[in-house]
Simulated assay, not measured.
Amino acid sequence: MPYHPGCLSTITADDYPALPGVFVQVWNGSDGDAVVVFRAYGDAPEEANLRAQLGSDALNVHEATGLTPSQLQSRVAELEAALRELLSSTSLKEIGKSTGFRDLLVTGDDVRAGFKALGEV
């Protein structure tokens, strides 16, 4: 089973003042043999959950593609440039027909993973 965030937001009981107040654990494996890979911290449960989801998505994309964080960052820059070009030079009706737009849809996970690689996790 791929990496996935746990279902429980937990109040931080660790005695480290710099840690935010809540964490969510990210797991790898299925129910019987899953192991905790890391904890995602946040000031609120929603923030911890979001960071856990972003982190698990990044690990899943890395395993599926083998791309390093710098490669993902480069891919995000390419996709952003392609999107800017499409939006500036094409009408909305033509965007739906554009192969570039379909490519952006296919590689949407690359964009999310790239932001994670940039330190949003």
Rank of each mutant, 00 (worst) to 15 (best):
H62I: 09
V22K: 01
T12M: 01
V76I: 05
L105H: 06
C7I: 12
L87G: 13
T90N: 03
L83C: 14
V22P: 02
S88V: 15
T99Q: 15
I11N: 08
V106E: 13
P69E: 02
V76N: 08
G55I: 05
F115A: 06
A48C: 00
A81L: 02
D15F: 05
L67R: 04
P45G: 04
A77R: 13
C7G: 11
P45Q: 03
Y3T: 03
D110M: 10
L50V: 07
W27R: 01
I95T: 05
Q53I: 08
P5T: 00
N49I: 10
A40T: 11
V111I: 14
C7A: 10
D43E: 15
H62F: 06
P17Y: 09
L105G: 14
L105M: 12
F23Q: 01
L54F: 10
D15G: 06
D57V: 10
R102L: 14
Y3W: 08
E85S: 15
G21F: 05
L87Q: 15
L72C: 06
R112Q: 12
L72E: 06
T65V: 01
L79T: 04
T65K: 00
I11D: 08
V26A: 07
A18S: 11
T68V: 04
S88K: 13
G96P: 04
V37S: 03
P69I: 01
G55V: 08
S56V: 02
N60D: 15
A82W: 07
A52V: 03
L59Y: 05
D14L: 14
Q73Y: 05
S56H: 03
P17K: 14
V61Y: 07
L104Q: 03
R84P: 02
L54W: 05
